[in-house]
Simulated assay, not measured.
Amino acid sequence: MSEVLTLDVVMDGLVGIVRDIAGVDVEPGPERGELSFTDDLDIDSLSMVEVVVAAEDEFMVTVPDAQIPKLVTLGDAAAYIHGEIVRTAK
């Protein structure tokens, strides 16, 4: 079985995706998980779909459309994706 990615690795990947899609640089640190996609990162619904699709490709997971509105912060998205990685690794 391959090694499961850590939550920090998932967060770093998401930060890179946000930078590539929205052109927003996210400062390193524990508070980055609290950043809101809409309020802090200025990501609209169309860009959010792009972020999700890129994350699905990057991490080889599926994020159902109904889950997207629940991903309010970077931390929410990282936790969900990490949970899916762990779940599918079993």
Rank of each mutant, 00 (worst) to 15 (best):
T62P: 06
L5S: 11
S36W: 01
V49H: 00
I85C: 07
G16W: 00
P30A: 15
E58A: 12
A78F: 00
D8K: 12
G33M: 11
I85R: 00
T62H: 05
E3M: 12
S45K: 02
T62N: 10
T6V: 06
V15G: 08
L14T: 01
M11Q: 07
L14Y: 01
V18R: 02
A66Y: 10
L7K: 10
T38I: 11
S47M: 14
D65M: 08
L14W: 00
G16Q: 08
M1D: 11
M1E: 14
V61E: 04
V61D: 08
A89V: 04
R19Y: 06
A79N: 08
P64K: 05
L46H: 00
V63C: 09
R19S: 13
V51S: 11
F59G: 03
D25I: 10
G83N: 07
V26T: 09
T73N: 08
G23M: 10
L71Y: 01
K70Y: 05
G83A: 11
A77V: 06
D25E: 12
E50G: 09
D57H: 06
M60W: 01
T73I: 08
G29Q: 09
T38M: 14
E27S: 12
L41D: 09
L46D: 03
I21P: 04
V15I: 15
R87I: 02
A78D: 02
A54N: 11
G83T: 04
K70L: 14
G83M: 05
T62V: 13
S47D: 15
D39Q: 14
D12W: 01
D44M: 04
E84C: 11
I68H: 07
L7V: 07
S2E: 13
I68S: 10
V52Q: 05
G16T: 08
A79S: 13
V49P: 06
F59C: 04
V49A: 12
E50F: 00
V15M: 04
P69G: 14
I43N: 10
D42N: 15
G13P: 03
D25R: 12
D12P: 06
S47R: 12
E34L: 15
D8M: 10
G33L: 07
P69H: 07
V53F: 00
V63M: 06
I43A: 13
P69I: 07
V53A: 08
T88E: 15
D44T: 02
A89K: 00
D8N: 14
R32M: 10
F59M: 05
R19E: 15
M60D: 15
Q67C: 10
R32C: 11
G33H: 07
V15P: 06
V63R: 03
S45V: 04
P28E: 13
S47P: 07
V26Y: 01
K90M: 12
